[in-house]
Design a protein around this nucleic acid. Structure first.
Lengths: 109, 109
DNA sequence: CCGATACATTAGCGTGAGCTAATACATTAG
DNA sequence: CTAATGTATTAGCTCACGCTAATGTATCGG
């Protein structure tokens, strides 16, 4: 996928609150099954599968089938296009760089 | 606006390709009128005004009326919620930190 | 004044997104 | 084998979105 399309895909995918919440839950855990993700989501299992399909196509999650379960995990590279796109507007980040600095130190002191 | 709503607004606003292109053009210049932004946009002036309204409500642009012209400029704080949201997933950035490091040095050597 | 210009707003149209309910398919349990 | 469980897929509904065309409003020029 070329970059502009990737950016559109990531933004469009994360724009939906239900789907973003789903992604955040996947991020929080190492792996989760569809059934676990359905519980407490407020929507049907079918809807969850559809959202996971979108997230997968956007490169934000990956799946690992095991028996009749399918475990989903977050995919690091998925947010890459968004990071790259925002890097283009780095001039706007200056007010927020305290956060980034903290983050940098925490990861690579 | 509370933070979750702000994130949704920013993501939803930037998800549309036409609107994102509009934002990128505003970022590229200091200020632009609606007529200038309409030229080469591929859509009607009315559509541009609608998109600018969305961008304004998301906090991504600001306006400065002057006579019968209205000058639009990019608004730094608008991307803040998105930066904050992504900071939460800093664990995913490691592959991309070269870019951020470069950016940091460039701004505060 | 009066026509032209710049922008905003509205109604209406077409399209796509998200949801449910139902179904299909594979796997496990008994 | 049969029933139950986990997941994906589909059809169909509703609704919001982006667009155009048209109109409204204010400002500038002659």
């Amino acid at each position: 996928m070329n970059e502009p399309a990737a950016i559109s895909a990531v933004l469009r995918t994360l724009a939906d609150p239900t789907r973003r919440a789903l992604f955040e839950r996947v991020v929080g855990a190492d792996e989760m099954t569809v059934a676990e993700l359905t519980r407490g989501s407020g929507v049907t299992q079918g809807a969850i599968s559809q959202h996971l399909k979108s997230l997968k196509q956007a490169g934000l999650v990956a799946e690992r089938p095991e028996g009749r379960n399918v475990y989903y995990r977050a995919e690091p590279e998925g947010l890459g296009p968004l990071v790259d796109w925002m890097s283009h507007y780095g001039v706007f980040w200056r007010d927020r760089f305290a956060n980034l600095r903290t983050l940098l130190k925490e990861i690579d002191p």
